[in-house]
Design a binder for these strands. Structure first.
Lengths: 217, 217
DNA sequence: ACTCTAGAAACTAAACTAGTATATTTAGTT
DNA sequence: AACTAAATATACTAGTTTAGTTTCTAGAGT
């Protein structure tokens, strides 16, 4: 949470970005607080008064940064997606040709990011903003397909992954399995750690995904 | 006005209020669904319409079982406390003279039960029903003191636990430590399992709590 | 002094929801 | 089949909440 302490940097805050997007430090802090509240408590029950109070600013200032609650939500989601995308991108860049390691890291990151979004938020999105929820799901799917898909296609090219099943399906299977297994309840029930849970799931799924030696495709 | 939260709402409270029985099977199911929703989503944002829809019953029927939302909340809390109390009781009964094992089981259970109650619920209680929240905290403390206290006093009697520190303080230290360590984030960070986390905390704390052999008190 | 920014707080209009009342349906009983 | 009891679906109301606006005041920079 250690953000830049350039609160006094307002000397050029009004200068150049008149029609600019809200990307200054003040807006960033608002987004971070809103993000924490929205994801853990939901959308409905987090009021603008709450946020202003928590931020130590007035609603007026809050509305100076964001035209409305939904706009704030959108900013939060955009921020989230940008962060996730950057993280996934970095991971694939760091492990260029190591399929298992890259997969493991990608999964761990995805799971952690997904875990930030608690049930109340999902519930509120579903019932109060299904329109936005749809977009989120589409973007999420696109993100996953982009990063995991690239990895799997690369894996197919290098003979690590079988080619007779669509990468999309394999990815979905993998993600569904991870999400079903790597949660506090199951982890405790099975006597795992989150890390060992990943490893186990990956191993189990890969043994059905990896192109076995000598298998004719 | 809201009725007081009492233990005796469990069985056979045959009162003059006809149709207000809250211990039949129907009411039990309502309590279970409400419990799941309240604890994970909070109190405010769970509407009676939601509950009725989820239960597949009409609001009329819902109100036939419980006079109001707060009454339902109270029933949920009473149910929760009854369950926890019974579980703790059984644990102490099952391990009559095995201090370490009983302590371990007691802690594990307490942690698991505490974990069911998510932030949104706590937040709503705090701000919307501080009156009930206070009572809950008192009852929770009493429950803990009752079961852990008994164990610690027994431990003192048999020479397992030092006598120069109040059991209350020792218990508070232990619970605070467990709660700080045994959460998904810390567990992953430290590469533990929930179980091994308990064991580690217990061991560390006990080494300062157990009366060491040969130490004169 | 003047101006710009931001906070505090009051305010409004719209949305939401606990709780109630009404009508329709189902199921059991005679 | 007719009767009854209870549940469901639905419509409604009254009280509350809250997003968004406005007004006023304080302080800092010029």
């Amino acid at each position: 949470m250690a953000r830049k302490l350039t609160d006094k940097s307002s000397k050029n805050s009004r200068s150049a970005d008149a029609g600019r997007r809200q990307s200054d430090a003040g807006s960033q802090r608002i987004v971070e607080v809103a993000r924490a509240h929205f994801f853990s408590h939901g959308f409905r029950s987090v009021t603008m008064d709450d946020l202003a109070a928590e931020l130590g600013i007035s609603k007026k200032t809050l509305y100076a940064h964001f035209p409305g609650k939904i706009a704030l939500l959108e900013a939060v989601l955009a921020d989230k997606f940008a962060g996730v995308s950057a993280a996934l991108e970095q991971i694939t860049r760091e492990h260029p040709h190591d399929f298992p390691v890259a997969l493991h890291e990608l999964l761990a990151n995805t799971q952690r990011e997904l875990d930030e979004i608690k049930p109340p938020f999902v519930r509120d999105m579903r019932q109060k903003a299904p329109h936005i929820f749809k977009i989120v799901e589409r973007r999420r799917a696109a993100l996953i397909q982009r990063h995991f898909g690239k990895l799997f296609v690369e894996g197919q090219r290098t003979g690590m992954v079988r080619k007779d099943i669509s990468t999309k399906l394999m990815i979905e299977i993998l993600l569904a399995t991870v999400q079903a297994i790597v949660n506090p309840a199951k982890v405790e029930e099975l006597g795992l750690t989150p890390k060992s849970g990943f490893s186990a799931v990956i191993k189990v799924v890969l043994e059905g995904v990896i192109a076995r030696k000598g298998t004719k495709l």
